[in-house]
């Protein structure tokens, strides 16, 4: 088992500046929160080993700057993604309104083979702020939007308090895995996939 290269799952986090993308990623991977995160410039990466149905995977999380224009990172950045996480701040209306823009731009850049069924997960972050009194987007409204876009799973999170972060990323990993081509999912354990799995995937999505 140890000698076998684990399957990589590529997850991309998008959303407006300051909604907490970096904080969510760090809370999930390192179980830490800091008030001292700087604005992300370009992109950042973290990985985490996850276990799902007795198999180990490497979740590769690509964190982006909220203001980053898609052209700057190049299409390869988005292609081959297995799941896209859209984050907004429940206290900032505009960050919610922009979800549609982020989703559409992602589909253009990543051009997945089946855009209708590509796995997205939406996170409404910062539910802890002011005890929830300053939120401007209701859970109902967010869920309605997610339903209208092909039943996107929705989670309310607090990266600061670690609330619901683990559950959200479990769902992200599960959906990323579902997006993998079937034949790769059921490979017997003894076959060494080498780097092939990764490559195959990225070409598979470029058609």
């Amino acid at each position: 088992m140890a000698s076998r290269r684990r399957m990589l799952l590529k997850v991309i986090i998008l959303g407006d500046s300051g909604v907490g993308k970096t904080s969510l990623m760090n809370q999930y991977v390192n179980h830490k929160f800091s008030n001292q995160y700087k604005a992300t410039i370009g992109a950042d990466f973290l990985t985490k080993e996850v276990q799902f149905e007795d198999r180990l995977f490497t979740l590769q999380i690509w964190d982006t700057a909220g203001q980053e224009r898609f052209q700057s990172l190049g299409v390869a950045f988005y292609r081959g993604a297995d799941c896209c996480v859209l984050v907004y701040d429940v206290n900032v209306l505009k960050s919610f309104e922009n979800l549609n823009h982020w989703r559409e731009e992602f589909l253009i850049q990543a051009s997945p083979s089946d855009p209708e069924n590509f796995p997205f997960v939406v996170l409404g972050n910062k539910v802890d702020v002011d005890g929830g009194n300053s939120r401007v987007i209701s859970k109902k409204k967010a869920k309605a939007w997610c339903a209208s876009k092909g039943n996107i799973p929705y989670f309310e999170t607090s990266a600061k308090e670690g609330f619901n972060v683990e559950a959200a990323f479990q769902c992200i990993a599960k959906n990323a895995l579902k997006n993998e081509p079937e034949e790769e999912m059921y490979l017997p354990d003894t076959i060494d996939m080498g780097g092939g799995g990764r490559q195959q995937r990225s070409t598979g999505c470029e058609c």
Partner: peptide, 21 residues
């Protein structure tokens, strides 16, 4: 290159803020 790393994934930040990070 084998890992699929494109240079801008890391150099974008180097160039924009002149190695500030």
């Amino acid at each position: 290159q084998d890992l699929g790393v494109e240079p801008q994934y890391f150099s974008l930040r180097w160039l924009r803020i002149l190695f500030g990070r």
